[in-house]
Every structure is written in C-alpha cells, then in structure tokens.
C-alpha cells in the first residue's frame, strides 16, 4: 500500500506535463539540458505526440530563423543582391586614404 503510494508519488514527480515539456524543448533549443532533464523529456515525448510535433516543428522554425547566407545558397540556391544604387551610396562613404 505505502509502496504503491510512494511509487505513484515518485512517478508524478518524474512525469512532465506538456507545459513543462515544451519549456524544456525551448531550453534545449536556446541553451542546453542536463542529463536528468533530457531523460524526463525523452520519456514524455514517447507518450505525447503533441509535444513531439511541437519539438519537430520548433526545431524546423529555428533552423529557418538561424539560416545563414551559405546555407541559403546551398539548400535553396538563393542569394539576394544589394541594389547598385545603394552600393554606390556606400562607396561614397569609404574613407579616403591619407
């Protein structure tokens, strides 16, 4: 009886709810998780498709937000070009050699 109670209490403490799980996913993207947090998150994700989707999609969004010109060229074959007019404007500001 008491074993069962203790066990349930322990599981309750270990199991994350979805608000906590998504918070850890965020922390994983923006910082890092310790081993205990990683394990708890993994356990939650095994049981929760919603949070799993949140993780996959937020990771993708993060990737696009952190896209560099190199990756843009490589993956999407795209670059942007600064208009010549603006380049000229900047050119006029180059300090003259003394």
């Amino acid at each position: 009886m008491t074993y069962k109670k203790t066990f349930i209490k322990l599981m309750d403490r270990t199991m994350l709810d979805c608000a906590q799980a998504t918070r850890l996913i965020t922390k994983q993207l923006d910082d890092r998780l310790n081993l205990f947090e990683k394990a708890r998150l993994k356990l939650h994700l095994l049981n929760c498709n919603f949070c799993y989707n949140f993780k996959v999609q937020s990771t993708k969004i993060d990737e696009i937000l952190k896209m560099t010109p190199e990756k843009l060229a490589e993956n999407f074959n795209e670059t942007y070009q600064l208009e010549p007019g603006i380049k000229d404007k900047i050119k006029n500001q180059i300090p003259k050699n003394k």
């Binding site: 979805c18 608000a19 498709n49 919603f50 999609q57 993708k60």
Partner: peptide, 14 residues
Amino acid sequence: NHWIEQRAPKSWSA
C-alpha cells in the same frame, strides 16, 4: 498544463 486539443500541434512537416 496539458494541450487544449484544438490548439495542439497537428502533424505536419515543413
């Protein structure tokens, strides 16, 4: 602290 179903992440991939 669990997802409100209508607003929970659907399954899609970008």
